[in-house]
Write a protein that binds this DNA or RNA. Structure first.
Lengths: 209, 209
DNA sequence: TACTTAAGAGTACAAGTGTAAGCTGAAATT
DNA sequence: AATTTCAGCTTACACTTGTACTCTTAAGTA
């Protein structure tokens, strides 16, 4: 049967990816994984790894990509909820916190590699975060009518604050997570309201446009 | 001569610490350093390492401590400048950015280990950052008269934003660094003004206190 | 001066690493 | 049916790693 072989190969590839994800934990970052460990976990011979990836870096970037996809799916979900429930900030933060709770490996990967050794990794994660920033900036620009530049700065601050709250929430229990969520919501409101304040001032000075 | 031996030992200890700092770079995080690498760089035998530190973790925590000291010195400098120049936010951010520019290893160490593998490291860095948060919260509380809780949330947001701006600035050229400084300053102003907005609302509702 | 202490070096070893080279057998192609 | 392709395996090698053990030698002590 044609394609049977390719199918099997794809399956093994998935096994490797899943094995790598599975090995990530509180005390194991991706950069601390060895090729042999991953293949051991995947149940294949060390040298077979090379049939699927050039090296560990390539596998790692694949993981980051997959993490990014998961994150963007999440964003879609948040948008949907926003339409249903109204409150933009709190639904966004809550959705994000749920994600971290449900897929800690994925978030941890992005979190660690964002400031990790490899430039390629840092760039990849930074790119994923930029998706958020741009999308949020668009939203702010359209619904609140901010100029693009201002909306971007505002969105950037918000994404950083949520991401950091997520990082803190990673290793904490449900009660503490709720507190962190609350804190993040307040912080985002500060940013939103602060930006608004500056917009009003500007309007006062340039009342003609 | 009494104390000569201890003196020599201290000197070697310093050599080890300096060697470790020296090995940190864009592509080498502390957790990726081996004991042998450090001793090689320090010019001592691998096994001599144990005369000074229990293991690599102990050395690492020492580095984090030293980084913290440097950071607190910086804070003192910022306070001094604030008195001279007035503008709290922009002087703070600028001082911080100068620090990152002048001691990138130290900042990189804190940045990476903040989200690293070792819980001990994460806690140590988090503690260093809390010094900033608490001190800044005190300042806000005293000069602007916010309640402690609110000042803390505000300070927390500000420290996160500055720290993240620093992270971005680490690998960037002077021109880009200026832009990042500007962005961070705006973001902090958003937070400050946003917090103020909420305080006014609260006062409106609880006009009796 | 004789004795003790301890920093630092040297040797050695088991355990892990990445990856080159070559083999096997089933799937795909001719 | 004969041939080619290629995913996965085995073996092998040259390294690096942390650290236990032992020795040396100069400083400190009695």
């Amino acid at each position: 049967m044609t394609g049977n072989r390719a199918q099997q190969k794809e399956k093994t590839r998935r096994t490797i990816i899943d094995a790598a994800f599975h090995l990530l934990s509180q005390e194991r970052s991706y950069s601390s994984l060895s090729l042999r460990e991953v293949t051991r976990e995947a149940g294949i011979a060390p040298t077979s790894f090379y049939r699927h990836f050039e090296d560990m870096e390539e596998l790692g970037l694949t993981l980051v990509d997959e993490g990014g996809v998961a994150l963007r799916q999440l964003m879609r979900k948040a948008r949907q909820r926003m339409r249903e429930e109204g409150s933009v900030i709190s639904t966004s933060v809550e959705t994000f916190m749920e994600f971290i709770h449900n897929s800690p490996h994925v978030f941890r990967l992005l979190l660690r590699e964002r400031t990790g050794n490899s430039l390629a990794f840092r760039k990849a994660v930074s790119r994923e975060l930029q998706y958020f920033v741009v999308e949020l900036a668009d939203y702010i620009q359209q619904t609140q009518g901010y100029p693009a530049e201002e909306a971007k700065v505002q969105a950037d601050a918000m994404v950083i604050l949520v991401f950091n709250a997520g990082a803190e929430a990673l290793d904490s229990k449900s009660a503490e997570r709720k507190l962190l969520t609350k804190k993040a919501v307040i912080q985002l409101r500060y940013v939103a309201r602060g930006a608004e304040g500056y917009r009003k001032i500007r309007k006062l000075y340039h009342a003609d446009n």
